[in-house]
Design a protein around this nucleic acid. Structure first.
Length: 555
RNA sequence: UGGGGCGUCGUCAAGUGGUAAGACACAAGGUUUUGGUCCUUGCAUUCGCGGGUUCGAAUCCUGCCGCCCCAACCA
């Protein structure tokens, strides 16, 4: 059990919050959700579930300049996909603008807030530094009546942007910078995605967040580490306002992942500069990107269970995310045969025009998945990588004179290599098969080390296959300068003319399977259609042969 | 630098005074009609470093070191 659940459990045992548990996920609708957000979502939703509590969705929409309805919709879709259910409790900080305004008035009346006329520059200069105390604004002792009048003027649009702000009167010498008379409201004459032009003053995060929690009866306001310094201010508002409930803020370490970036600002730049096709590009660490790549919600939940919750900043190995996906798909995905880079094989002793139906196991990990029939004929496609004219000792695939097994079908032996007379490129293999080995076993007990996947040439379905790899080539893209310099130039390779076993021709978008010996693939939800399949490679299979080769240990 | 937070295996992470869980990664074997899966084994005499308290310390005290956050009219 992590430290936050321990706190919740303890609160329950002590009878705090009337025995309630109520959490929330408070995204700002200024970008798409990413895998890092899934940690916060699953934590908050998970705690509500486990302790019989409730979970709210609340959009933190206090900055109209960056927020859009498109983001609101994408966030809701992603939350649903992850399985987080906020029932009918969908809120917006902007729902509380009236109450927040009233509370601001309350603070002014109590002499705890004032309207300040300092310029942006002066506010900054007077704030002091981390080692020096700040100085009070000349307006700090403005009479409450006057502040009240000015604040109303601000609300009514009588002033220009930047002319006035509302500030709390706390302590300009406080060692915590957040407590040096923080800004509560600013004038912004911009259209808000929900309140339209109703308001021209908008509350800041600090003045909106805790109070929104209080209004909703949130018991545990869980957020990330960088808000730790905001907590004294969070508590100050709760203590100095007549709020209906006192929530408690608890911070945990946000998720970082190797080979990617997680800040919305950086992701937005990737989108805007066209380094990716959009927020849902399969290479993006966004929820929508992972979904389109082929990830499952359960694998993301499983991943989150394994990384834990703690307070130390950390970066999780991307391999763990990939592992969580493989672990699930190994159990659930049907195995099919697809040749990505085709090489023609003619089985010279196989009768011309003959076609046999070969029975294939759908998933050896799941007997209930049954079998299917795949046509076999004289000409087939195999993977170019599965043939080497000059092969190292440990290369168990096809080479001149060698015998291998075609999965579920026959043993074949390579008799001759046909090359393009001009380029020397291998264009076709002439092989012979052993009719006694149908099904893949030899009656004389003869063993072969290699088993290849294949597709009958006459029956193959053509497809486009997109091979995705890490977006960045460095585990820490931010290290040493600009992350854009560390973009992986080979993050996407598009293959056309791939040869699929015929059953794959009519597959629906969103279909998931294992291309045997290659990886898990997903029929692209947007570009694939029955009759014209387009597959995304979600994740490769572990490849110990590639590892041997890379290590020079192929004999 | 003032304040806040954190330092346990390559990466995450349990552990809260009784003598270092687990997962991923990695390595070596075995099984295998996917060089996949699966199985076996190995992988921190040590918990940032140094002192101290104690029969006993990753856990308590103390000094130091390192990393992260805060000086947006962002969240």
């Amino acid at each position: 059990m992590d430290f936050i659940r321990a706190i919740v459990k303890d609160d329950l045992a002590a009878g705090r919050n009337e025995g309630r548990v109520h959490t929330r996920f408070p995204p700002e609708p200024n970008g798409y959700l990413h895998i890092g957000h899934s940690k916060a979502i699953l934590l908050n939703y998970g705690i509500a579930q486990e302790f019989g509590g409730k979970f709210n969705l609340r959009f933190d929409d206090t900055n109209p300049e960056k927020e859009e309805t498109e983001y609101v919709e994408s966030i809701k879709a992603d939350l649903r996909w992850l399985g987080a259910d906020w029932e009918d409790r969908e809120f917006f900080a902007s729902d509380y603008f009236d109450q927040l305004y009233a509370w601001a008035v309350h603070l002014i009346t109590a002499g705890k807030a004032f309207v300040c006329s300092q310029s942006l520059e002066d506010v900054r200069a007077y704030r002091g530094t981390v080692t020096e105390p700040g100085r009070p604004s000349p307006d700090r002792e403005r009479p409450a009546e006057e502040s009240l009048r000015l604040f109303e003027g601000m609300k009514n649009g009588e002033f220009d942007e930047g002319q006035y702000t509302l500030r709390a009167k706390i302590d300009m010498a406080h060692s915590n910078m957040k407590m040096r008379d923080p800004l509560l409201y600013r004038i912004r004459k911009v259209h808000h995605h929900r309140t339209g032009d109703q308001w021209c003053i908008y509350p800041f995060y600090d003045f909106a967040h805790g109070q929104s929690d209080a209004i909703e009866g949130i018991t545990h306001s869980i957020c990330t580490l960088e808000f730790e310094v905001n907590r004294p201010l969070y508590d100050w508002f709760i203590e100095n306002l007549p709020v209906p409930h006192k929530p408690r803020q608890i911070e945990f370490a946000r998720l970082n992942l190797t080979y990617t970036v997680m800040s919305k600002r950086k992701l937005l730049k990737l989108v805007q500069e066209g380094h990716v096709s959009g927020w849902d590009d399969p290479r993006m660490p966004t929820i929508s990107g992972l979904r389109r790549l082929g990830y499952t919600p359960s694998s993301i939940r499983n991943f989150n269970e394994r990384i834990g919750i703690a307070k130390r900043s950390s970066t999780v190995d991307l391999d763990l995310l990939k592992w969580a996906l493989r672990e699930e798909l190994n159990q659930t995905a049907d195995r099919v045969m697809a040749v990505l880079r085709p090489l023609k094989v003619v089985i010279t002793n196989y009768p011309e025009g003959q076609v046999e139906q070969i029975e294939c196991v759908n998933n050896p990990e799941d007997p209930a998945s049954g079998t299917r029939e795949v046509p076999f004929s004289r000409e087939i496609w195999i993977e170019q990588d599965d043939f080497r004219e000059e092969a190292p000792r440990k290369f168990f695939r096809l080479k001149p004179g060698a015998e291998v097994r075609l999965k579920h079908a026959y043993f074949i032996t390579c008799d001759a290599v046909v090359k393009d007379p001009d380029t020397g490129e291998v264009v076709e293999l002439r092989c012979s098969y052993d009719p006694e080995t149908r099904g893949g076993d030899s009656p004389d007990g003869r063993k072969v080390k290699g088993t290849l996947h294949w597709v009958s040439a006459d029956h193959a379905v053509d497809a486009e296959v997109r091979l995705y790899d890490n977006l960045f080539r460095e585990p820490f893209p931010d290290q040493g300068g600009n992350y854009l310099d560390n973009l992986n130039p080979n993050s996407l390779e598009v293959l056309t003319g791939c040869k699929l076993e015929p059953g794959l021709g009519g597959v629906e978008p969103g279909y998931r399977c294992q291309f045997m010996r290659q990886g898990y693939f997903f029929a692209d939800p947007q570009d694939s259609q029955p009759g014209r399949p387009v597959f995304n490679r979600t994740v490769t299979l572990k490849d110990s042969w590639a590892k041997l080769e890379a290590g020079g240990k192929t004999g």
